[in-house]
């Protein structure tokens, strides 16, 4: 593990503080976080949400930025919201999926 991998893992952990209010789970386990890259002390995060235009999406984005910046070694966060590819329930971590009562195989 390089320092950078450690930092990425730390950012990912910090993002678990952000929950999707509707589904009630953190956005990492829900599969909303598509990519985390570190460039110097800047975290570049690519994420999604269930519905474009949903008023929750902008709060999620801000929440992601503020929790990433709480990680030591991160000076600023650059969060990109994308709907390509769109989020699918298949992206949810298996344990959480069962708990949410999602139909299997989708």
């Amino acid at each position: 593990m390089t320092d950078r991998d450690d930092l990425i893992a730390a950012v990912r952990d910090a993002l678990r503080n952000v929950i999707d209010p509707e589904l009630g789970h953190n956005i990492v386990d829900l599969g909303f976080v598509y990519d985390i890259a570190i460039d110097g002390d800047v975290a570049h995060i690519t994420m999604t949400a269930t519905t474009p235009g949903c008023p929750a999406a902008s709060f999620l984005k801000e929440g992601v930025a503020s929790s990433a910046m709480q990680v030591e070694g991160i000076g600023s966060a650059d969060v990109t919201m994308t709907f390509d590819p769109p989020w699918r329930p298949a992206m949810i971590a298996p344990e959480v999926k069962a708990e949410l009562g999602f139909a299997e195989l989708n």
Partner: peptide
């Protein structure tokens, strides 16, 4: 409840633990 959640907890998301809409 959904709008109330966003109004109250949206601004602190990522800074503090928040409840669910539920």
């Amino acid at each position: 409840p959904f709008l109330t959640w966003l109004e109250t907890y949206g601004p602190v998301m990522g800074k503090a633990p928040t409840p669910r809409v539920h």
